[in-house]
Design a protein around this nucleic acid. Structure first.
Length: 361
DNA sequence: AAGGCGGGGGA
DNA sequence: TCCCCAGCCTT
């Protein structure tokens, strides 16, 4: 595709009229805010991110505030957003950035950003382009779809050859002027016009040079991955152990689902309650009541989880409360660092919970 | 190269 | 239900 097609110019002209210009990370468009937003936007739609972003930057207005923050508070503000490794990486990256000399706290180049955990090529390009206006390219799902259609890029987007070609095209189309606006524009185009389902080709500024549209095969691009494995179902039992308005939380292993977050302790396979409680420092004699709450299903991208909560109410806290690195008692209405499901499990407003408290002598 | 990692929204 | 999303990291 020759430069004189002025792909970027047409996309920019479209964006000037139809693009999104009121997203919170655009005002003000500082490196810190752009970086935080781009990490939140990994695999997450903009509309979902907006309220999380606003809470996050209100709590941590600068990279220094974030660097010195309590890790559980960072995770707390991420709770519900998913992919929690992003939050841990963001926090670690903030610590590294804050340790740099003030004069170059934020890299101006893609390579500098890519050294930070949680920042890959696309996120680095987005930050550099939007925060500094330097010529840099992105290749997110929106851009990938626009380019795969426009140039009929064959092969699964996961394949190495397609990746190489898409990156080449992305960089080819990136203009030298108005790079920040172009970056936003090409993403807006993919999100609102060149949509995954039912693209609105008649509203597209580059329709007349789109190779897939020429043959009416927009829906065939980008090629889908060959197959996906059958959806599996898991069942997990959690013990929601409460004493008054306190609840016992266990730090989950760093790897796996909800890695590094806190949750009610999970029953190990076929582990009896009278073995589980001592492991948690709870005396069996203090158990006042156990209630099997209604199970619920939680969908993940690749499997479903059946959550079976068992509420265990204690008459008193253990004589010796271990407030260790992997076990802690927290106020049920003020617990930090939980996943969305864990927060739901301990929510004081949970109906099953109220009935439990009401039967408490 | 493939799989893991959340959760929500739309069709 | 199924698919997809402003990806990155590990193996």
């Amino acid at each position: 595709m020759a430069k004189d097609d002025d792909f970027a110019g047409r996309v920019l002209a479209w964006w000037d009229v139809h693009g999104r210009k009121d997203l919170p990370w655009q005002h003000p468009r500082t490196p810190y805010r752009v970086w935080v937003s781009e990490v939140m936007l990994q695999q997450t739609r903009a509309n979902t991110v907006v309220p999380y972003f606003e809470r996050f930057v209100a709590a941590f207005p600068t990279v220094h505030d974030l660097a010195s923050a309590d890790p559980d508070r960072v995770l707390h503000l991420w709770s519900g957003l998913g992919y929690y490794a992003r939050a841990r990486n963001l926090h670690e990256a903030a610590r590294r950035l804050a340790a740099r000399p003030a004069t170059d706290a934020f890299p101006r180049e893609v390579a500098g950003w890519m050294e930070l955990p949680g920042v890959g090529r696309s996120t680095a390009g987005a930050v550099v382009a939007q925060a500094f206006g330097e010529r840099a390219s992105i290749l997110d799902a929106n851009v990938r779809r626009v380019l795969a259609r426009h140039h009929r890029v064959e092969g699964s987007v996961a394949s190495s050859s397609a990746q190489t070609e898409l990156w080449r095209l992305a960089e080819h189309h990136t203009p030298t002027q108005r790079v920040a606006d172009y970056t936003q524009a090409i993403m807006d185009l993919g999100a609102t016009v060149c949509r995954s389902a039912k693209p609105i080709c008649d509203a597209c500024p580059v329709q007349d040079t789109c190779a897939a549209h020429a043959t009416g095969e927009e829906a065939q691009f980008p090629h889908r991955s060959p197959r996906k494995s059958a959806r599996r179902l898991e069942r997990r039992r959690f013990f929601v152990i409460t004493a008054g308005d306190l609840v016992l939380l266990e730090k989950r292993p760093a790897n796996g689902v909800w890695g590094g977050l806190w949750s009610p302790p999970e029953r190990r396979e076929d582990e009896p309650l009278d073995e589980c409680l001592p492991r948690l420092g709870v005396e069996l004699a203090t158990v006042a009541e156990t209630t099997h709450a209604a199970p619920f299903r939680h969908g993940f991208s690749h499997y479903d989880l059946d959550v079976l909560p068992v509420y265990v109410h204690l008459t008193r806290l253990p004589a010796e409360v271990r407030d260790g690195a992997s076990l802690r008692w927290a106020r049920r209405d003020d617990a930090l660092g939980l996943s969305a499901v864990a927060a739901k499990l301990i929510a004081p407003t949970e109906p099953t919970q109220r009935s439990l408290l009401e039967t408490d002598p």
